[in-house]
Design a protein around this nucleic acid. Structure first.
Lengths: 337, 337
DNA sequence: TTGAAAGCGCTAACAC
DNA sequence: GTGTTAGCGCTTTCAA
């Protein structure tokens, strides 16, 4: 049997209630008793039973972070931000991997409820309404990250604007046929980026050629295959915008296979940081997101909700930045013929 | 108030015990009552309270996976293996990020105990004995992954042998001065790989030149700096063995900065899969680990322990493989002068 | 300020 | 096969 609060109480010659008070340092306790309790706790190696505590208080000091793909460094980079925000408030962060799978996501949302987590940060793969209702019923706050769901708190970046800016940048560089590798249109993020791409073309007076758009799955191989397919379009694109990090890596692979170099043969812009993959030597122009800050803000917002903040759902949009490096430049074509 | 088991019992016209029996499908229950219960559960949207359940049963259907660096795809690649093994047995997997920080790791081990997780898979950053004792006391099984701790179950690869093999490969290719970027020697993994490197040199009759060894922190920048430092040794190495994936990426950066190409200017072997980073076009020779299987075996072993398997601590060593690609080859030098 | 006692929601003996 | 009852370990009234 492990030591419980009664053992500590007995050892310290006080009641269980006093031990509890000392440990949760709420009301004032006689300093002497306090010391005796603390001493007993240490001597006996007492650790409170979380289940009993949360059964009583109906909450834990744990927040859940459900990530849509644990193997994608973009998501894991946000983890530390959430952790730091949580830790400052005394909470621990526990992760789950939804694997872009709606069922798995639903399962973990249920685990979160069953384990009475204090709140959830979620990058929804497709968040089923029933589960969200479940959380709402139990007053478990939830903050969406990277992707939005109407009516819920979220922390994102201005995807549409950034994709538009990236596309405009390629056009300004003189590239004529800009292809686009889109993400799964179940996510707001992917849809917004596609919209931005379209808007840029329209506003610069170009037709949106469906042959220059490929939808893929946000993964390396998907990006590879999509880029490969695009490159074999009738007249192939002379530039490519790829809408997430993993697909960017795959697309670069496809370029290499086709014997194309960016810059030089083709203009290229990726999404998200890829230095974790390619190192600093790769001079790839990308849209870079403040991943740590996204996590951090989501964590902070969640904690505010946990503390009872009941203001209407907030949509926090953090600035992100098109970082122009070599891969998008088109020196030759800009030079007057 | 959320619905509880008594509400369901009332709605179904049975006792709480019967509801519990139906839900945990232990003993036989009259099919008719069964149906009434299931119906009531659905109608009321009842979900069992995990805290109450685990207070009673002193265990949850959750296993913890504490990872030493969540941003490292090597570790996240193992997650799915653990998840699959757990899921088949009806368990959910919850992750925590220790961030190679012994204190954080200790905190999460305590959370795991407090939350009464059924078992732990851990890639120890330095696992403090007190926490391990804590788990032992409470009979929470723990399986080490990637790194070993004497007396505990573990799933690893033959690090020493593989590092030796990789080094021998470079030597056989005709490289004369093989440098080594080592990991933090707090981990068994790093120490074993260093040993393997040394053994290879010794057995091929070469001196172990301390100037050709640099210890770094298993991260990209650490690998970069270590490789950079090695390259400025008096006579620089003409080949490099780097002992994990992140450092491999950093080291490749350093090579590029120094204007060196592998193969050609220098022989290069990395550790772990790096296709997630560099794509398939990178022809880097690496020691590849069966990450999914490592996770899976660890999960299976843990579940056996949870079920009560009390055989002595097991050291599972899974085969890994030196995959020779271009970066380590030395065609020129092997060719007779 | 401290203690006694009730009860969070569930499961497992034990009776029937 | 089903219901009754007694706790799991903790926090939190309520009295003292």
């Amino acid at each position: 049997m492990t030591t419980k609060i009664k053992d500590v109480a007995a050892a310290a010659g006080v009641s269980a209630a006093t031990v509890s008070r000392v440990l949760n340092d709420n009301s004032e306790v006689n300093p002497e008793l306090r010391d005796r309790v603390l001493d007993a706790v240490k001597r006996l190696g007492y650790r409170p039973n979380g289940a009993a505590r949360s059964l009583r208080t109906r909450a834990t000091m744990v927040v859940g972070l459900i990530i849509s793909d644990i193997t994608n460094p973009f998501f894991t980079a946000m983890v530390r931000g959430v952790e730091d925000a949580a830790q400052e408030a005394g909470y621990s962060v526990i992760l789950a991997n939804a694997d872009e799978d709606v069922d798995k996501e639903a399962r973990y949302l249920e685990v979160a409820v069953a384990e009475q987590m204090a709140g959830i940060v979620l990058s929804p793969a497709g968040a089923s309404q029933p589960r969200l209702d479940l959380l709402a019923e139990r007053n478990v706050p939830i903050v969406m990250i990277d992707r939005r769901i109407p009516g819920y708190d979220s922390v994102t970046i201005p995807n549409r604007q950034l994709a538009k800016q990236a596309t405009c940048h390629l056009i300004e560089q003189g590239w004529k046929r800009v292809g686009f590798v889109a993400g799964p249109n179940t996510t707001t993020t992917a849809r917004e980026r596609l919209e931005g791409y379209r808007a840029a073309l329209r506003e610069s007076g170009r037709a949106v050629d469906p042959d220059l758009i490929r939808v893929a799955d946000y993964r390396i191989d998907g990006g590879h295959d999509a880029a490969h397919a695009l490159l074999s379009a009738k007249p192939p694109p002379d530039a490519l915008l790829v809408s997430n990090n993993l697909m960017t890596i795959g697309a670069l692979d496809a370029l290499a296979e086709a014997g194309l170099t960016a810059p030089g043969d083709i203009g290229f812009v990726g999404f998200d940081d890829v230095t974790w993959a390619l190192g600093h030597r790769s001079r790839i122009t990308t849209v870079e997101q403040p991943t740590y800050d996204i996590g951090r803000r989501a964590g902070e917002l969640l904690l505010a909700r946990i503390r009872g903040d009941a203001t209407p759902a907030r949509r926090i949009v953090l600035p992100a930045e098109l970082v122009v490096r070599d891969s998008s430049l088109n020196k030759e074509r800009l030079r007057p013929a």
